[in-house]
Simulated scan of single mutants.
Amino acid sequence: MDRLAISSGLMTATLSKNISELRQQIGTTSTEATTGRYQDLTLHMSGRIGKAMLGQKALTDLYTERDVLNLRASRLNLLQISLTNLQDSATGIAADMLNAIGTDHDIGIKTTARDAKTALDTIFSALNVRYGERFLFSGDATASQPFPDSSVLMNDVEQMASTATDTADFQTQLGAYFDSPTGGWLQNVYKGSTIASDPESVSADHSAIKSLISDLAVLAASGPDGTLSELTGYKDLVQTISLKLTSSETGITDLRADLGVFEERISTNLKNLATEETLLTEAFNQMTARDQYEAATELQSLQSMLEASYLITARLSKLSLTNYLG
């Protein structure tokens, strides 16, 4: 009876080991049946594992490059949306002001000046757009919001109008305000960087944007009750600025076209990566793919063997207990 008990114990231990191995194989095969890829590539590929790992690295690098391209595309899209808002906000203001000033229609001039101020508010808001924590129109100073409230600019324009001797003097002051490094534009209004090292970024100090803002600010201050209207040559100034605003809008279109070149390049690169991904994935799959039908069939077989092992173990346990009681 002792020999029988020892033999039964050895068989139970052997079965327990087999059960553990079967459960491990079932886990591995179940994963392979689901993923369609061998779990242990080193065992499956033997001496070819280096080639497979190079293929996998190439795919990983491709995914990283695609993520970077998608990030750049998202930023460019936000820039384009903001610049579109700039154009839409200014549309029609130049024509309305030219019509009103040409007919000496004070109500029309006042209404258009108010529209120019509203457009200016919208533009400042659009230029404060950010992607994550990065302000897109601040040049290299991406952590700095580029603009405060537009009232800061309007107060400065009103101040220049009140100190100017005539419209020519006002224009001289306005030019220095926007173009000089010590002018009010850089000292009081724009808080970003004048430098945009990334060719796909745009500083709100860009000449096209600055020109549009300057023109709208002057028109916003051109109401018949404002200080600017008291200067000699007021009517000619408003006509000149209105015509200039039309050119400034064209400048924004040109800027958008420049950004569109980058967008097209990114789109082309993404298409090329998609083609490359297809080829690399196919090559990698040929080396590492597991037939899912074959894996599922093997899984069923392993599960049947495991059930049988459990059954034998249970019977041995009962036999051992009977021997012990006998």
Rank of each mutant, 00 (worst) to 15 (best):
Ala208Gln: 06
Ser150Leu: 01
Ala176Cys: 03
Gln292Leu: 10
Asp96Lys: 08
Leu120Ser: 00
Ala221Phe: 03
Met11His: 09
Leu255Glu: 00
Gly27Thr: 11
Gly175Phe: 12
Thr227Leu: 01
Thr165Gly: 15
Ala126Thr: 05
Thr167Lys: 05
Ala220Glu: 12
Arg256Lys: 10
Ser82Arg: 10
Asn323Arg: 14
Gln145Ser: 13
Arg315Thr: 03
Lys17Asp: 15
Ser138Asp: 07
Thr112Pro: 05
Phe262Lys: 11
Ala257Tyr: 00
Ile109Asp: 04
Lys244Arg: 12
Ser151Pro: 04
Ala73Met: 06
Thr240Lys: 03
Ala113His: 06
Leu231Ala: 01
Ala52Ser: 13
Leu186Cys: 01
Thr250Asp: 11
Ser203Val: 12
Lys17Val: 10
Phe135Asp: 04
Arg3Trp: 02
Ala94Trp: 02
Thr194Ile: 06
Asn85Phe: 05
Glu200Cys: 04
Ser247Leu: 06
Lys235Tyr: 13
Leu306Thr: 13
Pro224Lys: 01
Gly92Met: 14
Ser7Asn: 13
Asp67Ala: 13
Glu65Leu: 08
Gly102Tyr: 02
Val189Ile: 14
Asp61Thr: 09
Thr64Tyr: 10
Leu127Asn: 03
Leu86Tyr: 02
Lys235Ala: 14
Leu231Tyr: 01
Met154Val: 06
Ala221Asp: 04
Asp291Arg: 06
Ser16Lys: 15
Leu43Asp: 09
Ser214Gly: 05
Ser317Arg: 14
Leu41Arg: 07
Met287Phe: 02
Gln239Ile: 02
Met1Cys: 11
Ser317Met: 10
Ser162Leu: 15
Thr14Phe: 13
Pro146Phe: 06
Asn128Ala: 11
Lys271Gly: 04
Thr142Phe: 06
Thr35Phe: 05
Leu120Phe: 01
Thr111Val: 15
Pro181Arg: 03
Gln303Gly: 07
Ala141Thr: 04
Ser125Cys: 03
Ala168Lys: 05
Asp140Trp: 10
Ser150Met: 04
Leu302Ile: 03
Ser301Tyr: 11
Lys244Ala: 15
Tyr293Trp: 10
Gln80Trp: 04
Glu230Cys: 00
Gly326Glu: 06
Arg256Ala: 12
Ala314Ser: 15
Arg3Met: 14
Lys235Ser: 12
Ala168Asp: 08
Met1Tyr: 13
Phe137Cys: 09
Ala196Phe: 08
Val202Gly: 07
Ile312Trp: 05
Tyr38Trp: 11
Leu41Gly: 10
Lys210Ser: 11
Thr322Asp: 11
Thr227Pro: 00
Asp149Gln: 10
Arg75Asn: 08
Phe147Asp: 09
Gly260Glu: 08
Thr322Gly: 08
Leu306Asp: 12
Thr60Met: 04
Gln239Asp: 11
Thr60Arg: 03
Phe137Gln: 09
Leu231Arg: 01
Leu10Ile: 12
Thr253Ser: 14
Gln39Tyr: 07
Thr60Gly: 05
Ser242Ile: 06
Thr142Glu: 14
Arg66Gly: 09
Ile312Asp: 07
Ile109Pro: 07
Met53Gln: 15
Leu186Lys: 11
Val152Pro: 00
Asn70Asp: 14
Phe262Ile: 01
Glu307Phe: 06
Ser214Ile: 00
Ala314Trp: 07
Glu21Pro: 00
Ala119Leu: 05
Ser7Pro: 00
Asp67His: 08
Ala161Phe: 08
Thr103Gln: 08
Leu212Val: 07
Thr142Lys: 04
Ser267Thr: 12
Leu120Gly: 00
Leu280Ile: 01
Ser125Arg: 04
Gly50Phe: 13
Thr60Val: 03
